[in-house]
Design a protein around this nucleic acid. Structure first.
Lengths: 141, 141
DNA sequence: ATCAATTCCTATTTGATTGGTGGGAATTAA
DNA sequence: TTAATTCCCACCAATCAAATAGGAATTGAT
């Protein structure tokens, strides 16, 4: 039940782009330095964000990346689902799941559904904009 | 972000013991047959439940397992934490986590904390007794 | 006393996934 | 033309998931 570095870094990349937005392109190298993460690895991750249209790339010298939309329009859930693949806590709840033959009698399915809903409510309720000025203070804790 | 078979099977074992309780010992073999899962694999899993004192074993012929407490006293969270290890969505929220040097400035920590709380609320709010008569109907869905 | 059923213990295996690294082609502003 | 950058893909090491396997220890029944 862990979110992988890929998903976490992706959120941090989006947040970094939002916080350091000056209208200019931001290079992977800069993000990697600020975030303390391998440039090569981030390249891959931001590539996914790019293909999905979450960021816009400019190739060549003086190139880089910028957000396509406003920070408030990206939920953490969107980013995680894109990079992690799925947030379903069990495979049989995935959208493309092949039917489990126990689905009609599975007494545990109810818990996993509740869990999935709870997870979705959190990640879909938080946007990059929400993270921009929070300085590490959780609503709860 | 998946719950492994180990955790899921553990919940099903506990539920099976609860539903098929006749006062007699229940053998791993029976559970394996009912649940459609490898006997040898279940052996390992129930061994963990046994060491933790969640079930009581009787060795030798005519031996088997039974629940120690009432079904209502076992939450899904207890069982999952025991078998999965931890339900924290990121390593830095684990109880024995070594401090991340970004902890003071980490803007994303707040989301992970919320997520963890949401997960805990669900799994700690559902007991084996709750699952016993549900027949696959989720509160939501 | 023996036997068969059962739990208990631990090693091994297979495949997938995670978390990267590395090389180099393509693109483009200066 | 060159240097900076994105883009693309192959590869790798370590870890984990999900079992499988073999046999020792225990015990009720005969």
């Amino acid at each position: 039940m862990k979110i992988s570095t890929k998903g976490r870094y992706a959120v941090r990349v989006m947040l970094d782009l939002a916080q350091n937005n000056t209208g200019e392109c931001i290079k992977v190298k800069e993000i990697a330095e600020r975030q303390g993460v391998s440039e090569k690895y981030l390249e891959q991750i931001i590539g996914v964000l790019n293909k999905a249209g979450y960021v816009k790339s400019v190739r060549g010298a003086q190139g880089g990346y910028r957000l396509v939309k406003e920070p408030g329009e990206y939920t953490v859930g969107m980013i995680l689902r894109l990079t992690e693949g799925s947030l379903a806590p069990v495979a049989c709840l995935e959208t493309d799941a092949e039917a489990c033959d126990r689905v009609d009698t599975c007494e545990t399915l109810a818990v996993w559904k509740e869990l999935q809903n709870a997870i979705n409510r959190v990640v879909d309720g938080v946007t990059i904009a929400d993270l921009m000025y929070s300085e590490g203070t959780a609503k709860d804790a």
